[in-house]
Design a protein around this nucleic acid. Structure first.
Lengths: 128, 128
DNA sequence: GAAGATTGAGCGCTCAATCTTG
DNA sequence: CAAGATTGAGCGCTCAATCTTC
């Protein structure tokens, strides 16, 4: 139960760090998927990988496109599908965001005693 | 980092359990504060105890009132203040919700090895 | 002026309904 | 008919602005 409280605290700090780049965890998540893929991805593929609903991605990409971080392009192989393509700004911003996240993550990791780390991993894995 | 994922999983299950009573974690949180207080509370007091913004409580109480679980009444000691008062339905529903939460919580607690419990508590506390 | 509550706008998420293309 | 995307409505949350009361 303190799990929810702890997660809320951690999430708030990560959001705060990303806000310095004009990003959010949701936006950074999509940008990172696109960077890792190395090519444009269909919106439905993004939804599947984020295990969320398609309409969520529609709106998220709306905002990413308004920010100039992503562009919608047609899928040559299927006219129903729409691909999300990173812009150069999007690529740069993702890298900056990842850097910010790493810093915060290191702070939290340091707060967990070495002896507790394995137990924490085990316990969290058990919740899946 | 798997912390966020685990918390999301747990939260989803708790929400699902409360949905069976037409409740949510947010609604149950406010109802529980009122039950524990044993008397009507000012909206700003609810916001303070949930450590959230006042306008959040305004809208949450709007929905609770629409559900017939809570009533807004005037504060006799301060005409700026508005008190949230439980209805009988609200009291009953909170008890039912608490029961549902206990069940789910027991399930998760059982999934954590006894040996890992102390370490988990320590680690989570360190995140505050 | 400061503290109470509310409103409007926006983010992130869900669901149900719709429209186009396969 | 099924799969792609979108729209509209709603929950839960934040912030900035407003209005009333202290």
């Amino acid at each position: 139960m303190s799990l929810l409280h702890a997660a809320h605290t951690v999430e708030a700090r990560l959001e705060e760090a990303l806000a310095a780049e004009g990003l959010s965890l949701a936006k950074q998540g999509v940008l990172t998927l696109l960077v890792e893929a190395g090519e444009p991805l269909p919106l439905s593929e993004l939804a599947a990988r984020q295990s969320c609903v398609r309409s969520n991605i529609t709106q998220l990409v709306d905002r990413l496109e308004a920010d100039g971080l992503v562009k919608r392009i047609a899928d040559p192989t299927d006219r129903r599908s729409i691909l999300a393509q990173l812009t150069q700004t999007g690529r740069d911003r993702q890298a900056a965001g990842a850097q910010r996240l790493d810093t915060v993550q290191a702070t939290f990791a340091a707060s967990v005693a070495r002896a507790d780390r394995a137990a924490l991993q085990r316990a969290l894995a058990g919740f899946q």
